[in-house]
């Protein structure tokens, strides 16, 4: 028996037993246990969590998506399919000239990198912290506008309405990734709101806890912030 502990086989035996014994006592007294009982209790997810996407609306109910297809171009997994169309004059869907007529994301291909969110000029597509996307067939994993587009209250469809697994409160918080990479964005602007309001939730608050900028970082960016 190779003895690497320098304590001899018997010493090694007691050393090993002590390790498990210590862990046992720690767990019995409630320390060291990291398990959360998942369906019953949800762990708080980080603010920049890359969950399933939603297509946002403005506060007046207009869709933010303008059908520019920048997200589809940015997508490294090529899982986004967008077709834009001209807004009908009598009943415009989005404030701009065009709107996203078809919008599909294949969630089986998506790598949740967030490049679509970065690319989007109108913050139409954002991540949420929803992550329960299991389906029983492949076709259901292709999210169309029906599932992606939020309703007037800012809630996405295809969320099991009665299911407690869906945490609606989280939807009201900002998608931190988008905030950090907002159009004029450097990471130092995390604390600032530079985005439009959304239906249901209004102007989402800035990312929590990160707005205390170090002094030197604030120096050169003075005019931007004003």
């Amino acid at each position: 028996m190779a003895d690497t502990t320098g304590t001899g086989p018997l010493g090694a035996f007691f050393k090993g037993m002590a390790v498990t014994g210590r862990q046992f006592i720690a767990t019995v007294f409630g320390k060291g246990l990291v398990t959360t009982k998942y369906p019953q209790e949800m762990r708080e997810k980080p603010q920049r969590f890359h969950g399933r996407h939603v297509l946002n609306r403005y506060e007046d109910g207009m869709e933010k998506c303008i059908g520019c297809e920048l997200c589809a171009g940015a997508c490294p997994a090529r899982c986004i399919y967008v077709r834009g169309a001209d807004n009908p004059d009598d009943r415009p869907v989005s404030p701009g000239e065009r709107y996203g007529f078809v919008y599909e994301i294949n969630m089986l291909r998506c790598i949740f990198c967030g490049l679509c969110v970065e690319a989007c000029p109108t913050e139409a597509i954002t991540h949420t912290r929803l992550f329960e996307m299991s389906t029983t067939n492949r076709a259901d994993a292709i999210y169309t506008k029906t599932e992606l587009l939020v309703d007037e209250e800012g809630r996405p469809n295809h969320m099991f309405e009665t299911d407690r697994l869906a945490d609606f409160d989280e939807l009201g918080e900002a998608d931190g990734w988008m905030r950090a990479t907002a159009p004029q964005g450097r990471a130092a602007y995390e604390g600032q709101v530079s985005w439009s309001g959304s239906a249901g939730v209004g102007v989402r608050p800035p990312e929590a806890g990160q707005s205390d900028l170090p002094e030197e970082a604030g120096e050169g960016d003075g005019e931007d912030r004003a």
Partner: peptide, 13 residues
């Protein structure tokens, strides 16, 4: 249960 405790797990519950 005991093995779970020794491995920082919950065990059957």
């Amino acid at each position: 249960k005991v093995v779970a405790d020794m491995q920082n797990r919950v065990g059957p519950d």
